[in-house]
Design a protein around this nucleic acid. Structure first.
Length: 412
DNA sequence: TCTGGGGTCCTAGGACCC
DNA sequence: TCTGGGGTCCTAGGACCC
């Protein structure tokens, strides 16, 4: 039998070049051809232009250090709203060429080009070129594209000719490319797995692909079998067309430069995290059935408390008691923490009421937060928040009294 | 890389049931 | 009551990604 999946596939991986910087340049011509980096708000380089890369500046570097290496560098604040808008427009352009698009991350996409040659009267490479030029013309940003029979190979390809490059890996030539790729540079193979493979003298992607399947199954887990097959040209990882607006979990974390052990401040930060996570959950109309609280110590150990909730919720007031008990179960008096975090998990779209819940109370809280979200959307995200999270911020700053508390702890 | 923040998927092992 | 065999659900934690 002839099945669709046995047809040779043409998968493209589209990867924006220095995406944040390109978005900034597209909206501010002054930045063109200059050494540019984003990350001013944190003092750490987040993204940088190729000109800056050429001078030896790297991601994660302190801003002052970058300025020392390259005094003329322009450092700007990251503007994630802007990047997200460019991202949406980029995906829209891609969908004009093929409906099968996976929004993999803010600046990357996979798409299936299989069968489009006849429609465009050209090779896959030429179609990729047209896509690249369209994005450049309409958005003024640069992308690199890899084309190959599988996602894993396409992802490798897009990296090979950056910036503004196109690399097509044909089935017959796969081994030529794999020979020059280190095993840790394969998508899905990280440090730990690479270290294991090195013990077996598997150092290149070709070494990996040349193993027999038994070896892979013996030492590695399921995802690696998929990677193995894809490296050999067999497409087994599907393109996921679901938009990224559905979440399995939503988390918010905050790190401190100096570890903290003050219970009030930590709890305040956690409530802060909780409010942000809940706000995001409400935006996507999701409610959590499980609350996860975590603290990271100075030596990077993480302590986690998981709380199963009777009722799915996205309202901070309702979750604070659970948050507190979770916090108390992991907090130790004589330990300092460098990070607090909250995650909302087991998210559901429908709000199910338990028979024993006070439905009136829940409805009141929902109404209240609808209003809060509206006000915060209009006047800024921190206009209204819980008094305790506000006090924690002030306490950390060393002030005695909070100077802006609009909403007291509201009992609903 | 001496470590920011936000995600996903997979596995091993325990509890419990027939 | 014991042993053998098998299934399901849940949880903690690992690994990886951008």
């Amino acid at each position: 039998m002839f099945s669709v999946s046995s047809w040779p596939k043409a998968i493209a991986h589209i990867d924006a070049d220095a995406f944040f910087v390109e978005c900034e340049r597209a909206t501010n011509p002054y930045l063109k051809d200059r050494c540019v980096a984003t990350g001013k708000e944190r003092g750490i380089i987040t993204a940088l232009s190729y000109e800056a890369k050429a001078k030896g500046i790297k991601r994660g570097m302190m801003v002052y250090e970058a300025k020392r290496i390259c005094p003329e560098i322009v450092i700007i604040e990251s503007d994630y709203e802007k990047y997200s808008l460019f991202s949406i427009r980029m995906f829209d352009i891609l969908r004009r060429f093929s409906p099968v698009v996976e929004e993999y991350s803010v600046d990357e996409a996979f798409m299936n080009l299989t069968g489009l040659r006849r429609l465009y009267h050209s090779s896959y490479e030429k179609i990729a070129k047209t896509i690249q030029e369209t994005i450049k013309r309409e958005l003024d940003i640069s992308v690199s594209i890899g084309i190959a029979p599988t996602k894993v190979l396409a992802k490798l390809g897009s990296k090979l000719n950056k910036p503004y490059g196109i690399t097509a890996i044909k089935a017959k030539e796969i081994h030529i490319y794999l020979k020059n790729i280190r095993v840790e540079d394969i998508w899905g193979i990280g440090k730990n797995t690479a270290a294991l493979l090195y013990k077996f003298n598997i150092k290149t992607a070709l070494d990996f692909a040349n193993q027999n399947e038994y070896f892979i199954r013996r030492y590695l887990s399921k995802p690696y079998i998929a990677i193995y097959k894809e490296l050999k040209g067999e497409s087994v990882i599907p393109i996921d067309e679901k938009s990224k607006t559905s979440y399995k979990s939503i988390s918010k974390a905050k790190s401190f430069h100096k570890a903290i052990n003050d219970k009030d401040i930590l709890l305040g930060e956690l409530i802060n995290n909780l409010e942000k996570a809940c706000q995001k959950a409400r935006r996507y109309k999701l409610a959590a059935k499980r609350l996860i609280v975590f603290l990271k110590t100075d030596d990077f150990k993480t302590y986690t408390a998981k709380i199963k909730l009777k009722t799915a919720s996205n309202i901070p007031n309702i979750l604070t008691d659970s948050l507190k008990s979770g916090f108390m179960s992991i907090y130790k008096e004589n330990t300092s923490y460098r990070q607090t975090g909250v995650a909302l998990a087991e998210l559901t779209t429908k709000t199910m009421y338990d028979l024993f819940d006070n439905i009136d109370r829940i409805k009141k809280a929902n109404n209240l937060y609808e209003a809060v979200d509206k006000i915060n959307a209009t006047y800024g995200t921190k206009t209204i928040r819980l008094a305790r999270s506000d006090m924690a911020v002030e306490k950390k700053k060393g002030r005695k009294k909070p100077n802006v508390t609009i909403m007291k702890d509201i009992k609903v």
